[in-house]
Design a protein around this nucleic acid. Structure first.
Length: 129
DNA sequence: CTTTTGACAGCGT
DNA sequence: CACGCTGCCAAAA
């Protein structure tokens, strides 16, 4: 694919996957956080996107705001959580303390993602005016 | 066009 | 701390 240096028009789902891949081991984000970082959509949209994540995407680092995750995934997620010291066996993730805190450098990357996503369409703005 | 459905969030009980 | 209800957003039926 001709992805490359230039922010082509990025699909929402792709943006979500890419952002998820930026999250370092030992840190987590909630679905709502992802939506906010991307500046578009909502938690449910993110969830939908994550459902189509391919291998290589650390889906266990994106969870619900309460520090848990949808039941079908819980078992597998817990193994990763233990391995990354995100939660003690059988417990949920303390998202309050383990929430990803991006460095300025990482914020840059996030910004790029947001920009390549929301190709400024004035239509909405127009609507409000 | 209305209704249903999701890997959700927040608040009240 | 566990449950249940309501609110949200976009896509699919």
């Amino acid at each position: 694919m001709t992805d490359a240096s230039g922010p082509g028009q990025l699909d929402y789902a792709q943006a979500v996957h890419l952002l998820a891949q930026l999250v370092p081991a030992g840190a987590v984000l909630s679905y709502g956080d992802v939506a906010e970082l991307l500046g578009s959509g909502g938690p449910r949209q993110v969830g939908k996107a994550m459902a189509t994540a391919e291998d290589g995407t650390p889906w266990w680092r994106v969870l619900r705001a309460d520090g848990n995750i949808a039941e079908p995934l819980l078992l597998r997620a817990r193994e990763h959580w233990e391995k990354e010291k995100l939660a003690r066996p059988g417990k949920r993730v303390d998202i309050k303390n383990l929430r990803w805190n991006p460095t300025p450098k990482q914020w840059e990357a996030i910004d790029i993602l947001r920009l390549s996503l929301g190709n400024p369409k004035m239509s909405e703005l127009d609507d409000e005016l």
